[in-house]
Simulated assay, not measured.
Amino acid sequence: MAKASDLRTKTPDELSDDVLSLKKEQFNLRFQRATGQLENTARVRQIRRDIARIKTIQAQKAATAAKAK
């Protein structure tokens, strides 16, 4: 689970890369659930929340950048 304070120190490109990798993992977990191979069902929820956390921080950074202009 990613902490918000750790994510705030990352650049927008790094955050985008993190979202992309989490989306890939989420996709793989969806297939595992469909085939009955998913062992850690809580991981689906963690990934969903991590994606939301990163997107929130991205929006906050975009808002502060827009305000600075």
Rank of each mutant, 00 (worst) to 15 (best):
E39M: 11
E14W: 03
L15N: 05
T41N: 14
D6A: 09
P12A: 01
G36H: 11
Q32P: 02
Q58D: 03
K23G: 09
L7I: 11
A65L: 07
D17M: 10
L15T: 03
D18Y: 09
R49Y: 04
E39A: 13
R30D: 13
K67D: 06
A65P: 01
A4W: 03
Q32G: 02
K3P: 02
Q46N: 13
I54W: 01
R45L: 11
L20D: 11
L38T: 10
L15R: 15
I54K: 00
T64Q: 09
E25W: 09
R8W: 04
R33Y: 06
L29M: 13
S16E: 13
K67P: 00
I51F: 04
L29T: 02
K24W: 13
I54F: 02
T35F: 10
D6G: 08
K24Q: 14
K55E: 14
D13F: 07
M1K: 08
D18W: 08
N28D: 15
N28C: 12
A63L: 02
L38E: 12
L20E: 13
D18S: 08
L29D: 05
T64A: 07
F27D: 14
A66H: 04
T56F: 07
D13C: 00
K67G: 05
R43Q: 15
A42P: 11
A63T: 00
T56K: 11
Q37Y: 08
T56M: 09
D17H: 11
Q60C: 00
L15H: 05
S5L: 06
L20S: 12
K23C: 11
Q60H: 02
E14G: 02
Q46E: 15
R48W: 11
D50E: 12
N28M: 12
T11N: 03
A42N: 14
K67M: 03
I54Y: 02
A63Y: 00
T11G: 04
A2I: 06
R8I: 05
R30T: 14
R49W: 03
I54H: 01
Q32N: 11
